[in-house]
């Protein structure tokens, strides 16, 4: 069975039985090769549900805003399932309030090419689900940090000029923030006053700080779905920073985001044994 048919069948059944009030998924967009997020609330609407390589958003983002009437059904590819798990861990969602239709995923496309985050994806299959829409696919063995390692190899001057150049493209539209399921603070630090820590314009220093803090806030919480970078209208290389955080969190705290519910998130816990290699040398 075609995966879209499988999704539609499952969603229809869930909606028909009233097991869920809505199924969050995608439908075909109005432009060719673009899909759009779609909330199916009736068995009929469920027939529009699809999931393919043109579905570039992370659906878990909608779990924050969707009106909660009954259980929520959601399509979840590997990264999305990890996002859902992260949200459950962060008490934004109860496991029993969500029905996960897991989708083993072969990646999404950008400009006709596999997106950079998908190229190094090592969790194509959902880690958490109630039902699977298809057979699991084979995961790849890949060095996720090749790019980070290469960048680290550059001089601090080179890294700074790269960073400055990337940041200078940013127009502070916050599309990255809105696309991210882990960005759900009622008021973001950049919007707060009293004190207003950092300026709100696209002053280079302020924008740099925005990106640094954004990356810090993603530490141990980013699943590298790539939705932020796909949503950026200016093509800022956002994953450069979040991948670095992923690497540090893995190497220092042996933590991978969104893999299991029991393990405490690295910044929600501490250990007497942590590495102090970054501290001032005597």
């Amino acid at each position: 069975m075609n995966i879209n048919n499988s999704i539609q069948e499952k969603a229809k059944e869930l909606l028909a039985k009233n097991s869920v009030g809505v199924v969050v998924g995608f439908s075909k967009g109005t432009i060719n090769n673009k899909s759009t997020p779609f909330f199916a609330r009736t068995p009929v609407e469920a027939e529009k549900l699809i999931c393919d390589s043109n579905c570039t958003q992370n659906l878990a983002t909608y779990l924050h805003t969707i009106e909660r009437k009954g259980k929520i059904g959601i399509l979840a590819r590997g990264c999305e399932a990890r996002s859902v798990l992260t949200l459950i861990k962060e008490k934004q969602l109860n496991r029993e309030d969500v029905y996960i239709i897991g989708i083993p995923c072969q990646g999404v496309a950008e400009n006709g090419e596999l997106h950079s985050s998908c190229k190094i994806c090592t969790s194509k299959n959902p880690v958490i689900y109630d039902d699977l829409a298809s057979e699991k696919v084979e995961d790849q063995e890949v060095d996720r940090f090749e790019e980070v390692n290469l960048f680290e190899g550059q001089s601090s001057d080179e890294r700074w000029s790269f960073f400055e150049n990337e940041v200078s493209k940013c127009i502070r539209c916050y599309a990255c923030r809105n696309a991210c399921p882990s960005c759900y603070c009622p008021s973001c630090f950049v919007d707060q006053s009293q004190p207003s820590w950092f300026g709100k314009t696209n002053n280079l220093s302020d924008t740099s700080v925005f990106h640094i803090v954004r990356a810090l806030h993603m530490a141990g919480r980013c699943v590298d779905c790539g939705a932020c970078s796909r949503s950026c209208p200016m093509g800022v290389n956002l994953r450069k920073l979040t991948l670095k955080m992923e690497k540090e969190v893995l190497e220092r705290f042996n933590y991978t985001t969104g893999m299991n519910l029991e393990e405490a998130a690295p910044l929600a816990s501490f250990s007497a044994e942590d590495n102090e290699d970054y501290m001032r040398e005597e």
Partner: peptide
């Protein structure tokens, strides 16, 4: 640890 590593990383 994360802040320091990130600051180093961006240059």
């Amino acid at each position: 640890a994360l802040l320091k590593k990130l600051l180093d990383y961006v240059g």
